[in-house]
Amino acid sequence: MKAFLGMGLLGSNFVRAMIKQGEKVQVWNRTVSKAQELEKEGAKAFVHAADAVKGATEIHLALKDDAAVDEVLKAAEPGLTPGAMIIDHTTTSKEGAINRTRAWKEKGFTYQHAPVFMGPVNALESTGYMLISGDEAVIATLTPSLSKITGKLINFGPEVGKAAAMKLVGNAFLVCLTASLKDTLTLSNSLDVSLDELLTLFSMWNPGTLISGRLQRMTGADHSKPSWELNMARKDTQLFLDATQQAGNQLVLMPAIAALMDEFIKKGFGNHDWTVIGK
């Protein structure tokens, strides 16, 4: 028997996937109706979290944040079966994951953080990525079960909290990528470049392939042999700013990047590779 606490878009589709795989799942949600909607698909809904976890050997969570996880687990605690394993898919702080792992172990339970790079469709189709780290014996025990509900289970080793850290780093990249694409679209509009033309460019020239090399160059010790000088990158950045200003538009990230470039140029790095700004 499994229990799932948190019937948002992600949690509800995890439950649907589990039911399709033949699992019996007890569910709870703060808004009771969201849990009850899954009864027609085979889940059993409960009003109280403590009732939802009774008899379950695996308790999954997909909630908002650290505070929500702590609050819901406290409410569920009276109903937990001895030896039950708590698997938390919530994106939380690293410290929160570490503290909960220790605290629940002291209470005689296993808490395993397993955040995901998955949307609702991924949860329904058991695709996408799930991250995990910590006690290798616990991971070995959970791997067969967790592998059924994700496309790829990525083990980041024995450090408790490492999976939480990796999820936050990945989300930071996604946030910056989206803001970067916003600036790209703004500049495109300012220069009368259509979306179709932009998509054509990226279909033929994929900047995603540059990420690994760019990270290595940014973190390298020597930037004195440039492939693109900082002075030249700053010149182009000003062209971005000028074009959007002339069109009456405004960029989000570029002004801050230009200011950072200016700082490094003042420090004497103008003739260095422009990735020196990542130091």
Score class of each variant (00 low, 15 high):
220 G>S: 12
14 F>Q: 00
265 I>N: 02
179 A>T: 15
80 L>H: 09
156 F>R: 07
75 A>N: 10
81 T>W: 05
53 V>L: 11
44 K>C: 06
180 S>V: 14
205 W>T: 13
275 T>Q: 04
5 L>W: 08
60 H>L: 00
276 V>P: 01
17 A>Y: 00
271 N>Q: 13
271 N>F: 13
224 S>N: 12
157 G>K: 03
166 M>L: 11
158 P>R: 12
210 L>R: 11
227 S>T: 15
203 S>D: 08
99 N>C: 15
272 H>F: 06
197 E>R: 08
75 A>Y: 04
198 L>F: 04
155 N>S: 08
36 Q>E: 15
91 T>Y: 01
14 F>P: 01
66 D>K: 10
87 I>Q: 00
154 I>D: 01
42 G>S: 13
245 Q>F: 10
229 E>P: 10
130 M>G: 03
69 V>H: 00
40 K>Q: 15
201 L>F: 13
257 I>Y: 05
156 F>V: 10
258 A>Y: 06
135 D>Q: 06
230 L>N: 06
8 G>C: 13
83 G>C: 15
194 S>P: 07
277 I>S: 11
16 R>K: 15
5 L>H: 05
179 A>E: 13
38 L>V: 09
58 E>C: 07
143 T>H: 13
158 P>Y: 13
66 D>L: 14
248 G>N: 11
57 T>I: 14
22 G>K: 08
110 T>K: 09
142 L>C: 03
140 A>P: 04
166 M>S: 07
11 G>C: 07
225 K>M: 15
85 M>K: 02
52 A>L: 14
268 G>I: 09
17 A>V: 01
67 A>S: 14
162 K>P: 08
212 S>Q: 13
192 D>A: 15
245 Q>S: 11
70 D>N: 14
145 S>N: 06
22 G>F: 01
144 P>R: 10
64 K>C: 10
197 E>H: 12
198 L>Y: 11
203 S>L: 07
93 S>G: 14
168 L>C: 06
120 P>L: 05
24 K>A: 02
13 N>M: 03
261 M>D: 01
260 L>S: 11
232 M>S: 09
219 T>E: 12
132 I>M: 10
112 Q>A: 09
54 K>R: 09
128 G>N: 04
47 V>H: 15
119 G>V: 04
228 W>P: 02
62 A>P: 07
74 K>D: 07
139 I>E: 00
141 T>K: 04
82 P>F: 10
